[in-house]
Each structure stands twice: as structure tokens, then as C-alpha cells.
Amino acid sequence: MTYHFQDSYAFANGVTLKNRVVMSPTTTMSSFYDGHVTNDEIDFYSARAGGVGLIIGEVANVVPGGKGFEGELSIADDTDIDGLSKLANAMKRNGTKAVLQIFHAGRKSNDSILRGQQPVSASAVKAVFPADSQTPREMTADEIDELIVAFGEATRRAIAAGFDGVELHGANTYLLQQFFSPNSNRRTDKWGGDRDARMGLAQAVIARVHEAIATYADRPFLLGYRISPEEIETPGIRLADSLAFLEMLADSPVDYVHMSMGSAQRTSLNDKSDHEPIMKKFVAQLAGRKPLIGVGSVETPADAEAVLAMGADLVAMGREMIREPQWMEKVEDHDEASIRYQLSPSEMTELKIPVAMQYYLKGAFYSVMHFTTDPATAVDYQNEAAPMEGFEKKM
């Protein structure tokens, strides 16, 4: 059987994928203390490259103060380029394209991770989730200007390292989302205010990264943007806000939009009377002006086809690619019966899953990984948030 996701895809800027399957960012938590690449990370991605059309690598901080967790990649210094080059090369095996996600964690960090520094955000507003969040320091105007420059410099390094693009992480409650959210952005200067004004940082970062691509790239180079559709805090981002944000992205230089949801069938977390999948709303809002990467509990070929049938241009898998590195190869070989849909703890080392990541999967992510040793029924995230989305489910 052949599937639509096996078809190639050409972006408007000339980057062409051999198929429409994307490995979404998966946090390995396995970098050195200073953010340099480890062999564990190289082995993890090498084992999953070659079949899918595109790998979006795990997030890298653009400044040291933007670090959000231990074992996080850095792209904040030119000394990072050598290791990132090895990582890009591992991802690009057999024609797979490689994009690196870049970000600043903002208030989704703490003074332990930042070695004594207070986390920063748009405003000095403590996050509701997790419960032990720390109150951040409001960024100064100068710091915001420096951060915008840092995103451009990170893009220059990604180009030098051999990646095929960068993705701005504006989802999962990280800093770019914090500036857009009325929950975390209470500023009264030009970086705060009404909904359009709160888009300002994202617009400035997109413009700076686009400028860096035009200046330094000697080949077609992608600029993506990842977005979470809603927040559950009050006040917080609602679907109407995200659809307005999409309108801005449609008119921007970004090459694609990447959703972040625990289920591709997700309906509104806040309006239970709205039964239309959010992905269909995104497709309608973009109206073909930018390609959309759909994601969320995609495991089987039928799941992947369903995402494309809703109008997404590409389909991403994260957890399933952890469980089954050869997912695409097995589909191509008509060997779907051998695809792993569960993960045995005893096989994780064989699957090149770094030890730090193994502990993480068996801890915070245990309920979403389909472990063979987990007797619980799989959770359906159609109507609630998943752990990877940055906030706890609404009770």
C-alpha cells in the first residue's frame, strides 16, 4: 500500500523533502553541562535519520540565560558550531533534511538551572504551572534588543553547522509565547499592551532571523515557527488569539508553521462547545499561504494519513519515533506489522536512547510512552493537554 505521506514536498524557498514525515523535536537532556553536543545525542539522531523527510532537532538556547533544563543544547557561542555540525551531519543521513529548534526558556526555568541567576520573562509574573515556579525578573528593553540579536547570531551558527533550517520555538509556554500571552506579559512599553503589540517580539525575532538567512546562507534555508494554540490560565492565549497570530505568520517570512499539541484531533481546551479540531481551524486560517506541520499522537500510517486529510501539508511524530526509529523504512518495505507501538524498558539502550532520556521517559513522560510494563490505559489527549505542552491538564 502507498500513502500520501510518502510523496515528496517542496517548500517555496527550494528546500525539498523526500517525503512528508517529520520527526518532531524530542528532548534527550543529554548535552554536556555547557550545552556542547555529546556522542549520545549524535547516536540518537543517527539511528532515526535516513527514513523520514525531515528531522527537527531538540531545542537549543540562544543565550546561556535562556537555558530551561539540564542537558540542554546550546547555540549561544561559536564554540558550539563544531559539535552542532556533527549533529547536523548525523541527522542528514540518506537525504533526510535537518532543522534545529532555537529558543529562550524565559520563566520556564529556575535559579538552580541558571546557576544562581533569576529567570527572566516579559513581566515579573510567576507561572501557574508547575506549582514550584519562580517569579521571573522583567526583561529590560536593552535585554530584549540583545535577545533579538542573539536569535540572529544563533541562526548564523546553524547555517555554519550545516543545518537546513531553524525553527523558532514559540510554543510550550517558552519565552516567545510568554511575550504573546496576556498572562505573562503585563508590560506597558512597546513590547506589551494589546494583542497586536504582544506579537512584537515574535515579529522582531522573525525579521532578524530572516535577515541572518539572507546574509549568511549559501543555500535554501528554512525558517519555521512552532505555536501552541491555547493556554488554560486566565488570562491566557485563546484560539482567537492564535488565529490572529497565524495571520501575522502568514504575512511574515517564515517558511512553515508547526503546531504543538498532544493530539492531532485536539478540540478547544477552553470552549467545550466547540467540537471542530483545532488543526482544521489552522488550515482554514492559513488558507495555503504557509505549509502546516500537524502533530499529536501520530503512531500508525493511518494516523499520519488522517493528519494530511485534515489539510496539513506535513505530519510530525515525536514519541513514536522514539519507540520506532525505523518507522518510515518499515512502511517503505511493506513491513508495517513489525512497527513498534510500545516501548520495552529493556530495549531503550538498543534503540540508542541516551541514559538521561531513559530516566526522563520513565518519569515525567511515563504515561504517554506506551511502555510494555505500564498497565494503564493509554490517555487520549483530544480534550486535554499532554505533559510535553508545558502545562498541567485542566481539572
Rank of each mutant, 00 (worst) to 15 (best):
K290I: 05
F179N: 02
M279I: 10
G165L: 07
I206W: 04
I81Y: 04
D251Y: 07
P345M: 05
Q178F: 13
G192M: 09
V209P: 02
P119G: 10
V21R: 07
R187N: 10
A386G: 02
S297W: 01
P235A: 14
K108A: 14
A385K: 06
N172A: 14
S273Y: 09
I81H: 03
K86P: 01
G170R: 08
A284I: 11
F180D: 04
T38L: 09
S344W: 01
A376L: 09
R323A: 03
I339D: 01
A127L: 12
Q326V: 11
Y360K: 06
L201K: 04
F69Q: 02
M321K: 10
D274W: 05
M259E: 06
K280P: 04
A154I: 07
D271H: 02
S31V: 08
L84Y: 07
W191R: 10
S121K: 12
E230G: 01
L175D: 06
D7V: 00
V295I: 15
P277M: 04
V355L: 13
F129Q: 09
S344P: 00
I42N: 11
A264V: 07
A12H: 11
N13T: 08
E70N: 15
L223A: 06
E143K: 14
N61Q: 15
V15K: 00
T2Q: 09
G390A: 14
D194I: 12
T28Y: 01
V315W: 03
L54W: 07
F11A: 00
G165F: 04
A131K: 15
L114P: 01
A309W: 09
L308W: 04
M199H: 05
A337G: 12
A154F: 08
E392C: 12
A207W: 05
F163G: 04
T188R: 12
E350S: 15
I75P: 06
D196C: 14
V149R: 03
G57E: 11
E347A: 09
G116T: 06
R226T: 06
M328G: 05
P354M: 08
R156L: 07
I278W: 00
S260K: 05
L17W: 00
L54C: 14
I213E: 00
A204R: 01
M29A: 10
S181R: 02
D313G: 03
D142N: 14
L361A: 01
D80L: 08
S133F: 06
H258T: 10
A150Y: 04
D335T: 11
A49S: 04
S24Y: 12
M261P: 03
F129C: 15
A385Y: 05
D78N: 14
F163L: 13
I213D: 01
F365M: 04
D82T: 11
G116L: 12
L222Q: 02
D111Q: 13
Q265H: 13
I148Y: 08
E384L: 13
A287L: 10
A309L: 08
N13G: 02
Q177T: 12
M259K: 07
N61K: 13
L351R: 03
R266N: 07
Y341K: 03
D194Q: 14
E72V: 02
G262D: 00
